[in-house]
Design a protein around this nucleic acid. Structure first.
Lengths: 125, 125
DNA sequence: CTGAATCCGGGATGATACTG
DNA sequence: CAGTATCATCCCGGATTCAG
């Protein structure tokens, strides 16, 4: 499915940039948080509960990282008590779509991956 | 493009597995090495030269990791001097196709990402 | 409610040198 | 040729505590 039928930029060209994005969505909690936000905007404590046992610190770190790459928006409503809403940007939704293809790939290749790991462990240490 | 039109397995279901794969292809040298192997099998020192300044150790670590997940094959030809060929498996080629869509996404959203980073750095520290 | 500050352990990455 | 061994370093992620 995901064969590059498009112009397909070279991997080398924007290599470090791609690595940055790959690392970003590869962060421990990034995929879950993006999945959650993909179904609509959420507040901090909502995410905190839904993604438990994530800690406040890691949720902040994750959100800040995604925000700094333009994948997530952070909207502060100056109310009392404070209220902050997070949501995916257009780019963020697009990228999450790609992450989803990885989910599908993993689902499809789960057995093969496990078999490879078992075989590798047997052959080596 | 990459909107999930397929059955689309849930992100939560095989969550740790997906994270493992994401981390695997997110390793520093994994994308480059996979790109190189996507154009045909290569020998250790070939990769070492082509991906310089990678060190022998990191090339080994990267290849072993990819091999253990069934993305790369390692073929030893019992000749003298020793000859070892690395190549992508079918699953590896598929997964690299997905990585390539990330490359395209990055290419397309480069400006937006940079703008977001600049804005974030201005607003915060 | 929404974070920030601090400390810490472990894994990822790298430099260098050596080997079957 | 194709790695391995060792040591140093750095950053991610978690626990805990505190603040606007």
């Amino acid at each position: 499915m995901a064969e590059s039928a498009e112009p397909a930029a070279d991997v080398e060209s924007s290599c470090e940039e791609v690595r940055g994005i790959l690392s970003r969505v590869g962060e421990k909690w990034a995929p879950q948080v993006m999945a959650r936000l993909d179904s609509g905007p959420r507040r901090f404590n909502e995410l905190l509960r839904l993604e438990a046992p994530i800690t406040p610190r890691m949720l902040t770190v994750t959100l800040r990282g995604l925000e700094s790459d333009g994948l997530v928006t952070r909207t502060v409503h100056p109310t009392v008590p404070p209220q902050v809403e997070y949501g995916l940007t257009r780019a963020g939704r697009e990228l999450f779509g790609i992450v989803h293809t990885v989910v599908n790939w993993t689902d499809k290749n789960l057995e093969a991956v496990h078999a490879a790991r078992a075989a590798y462990k047997t052959t080596n240490g």
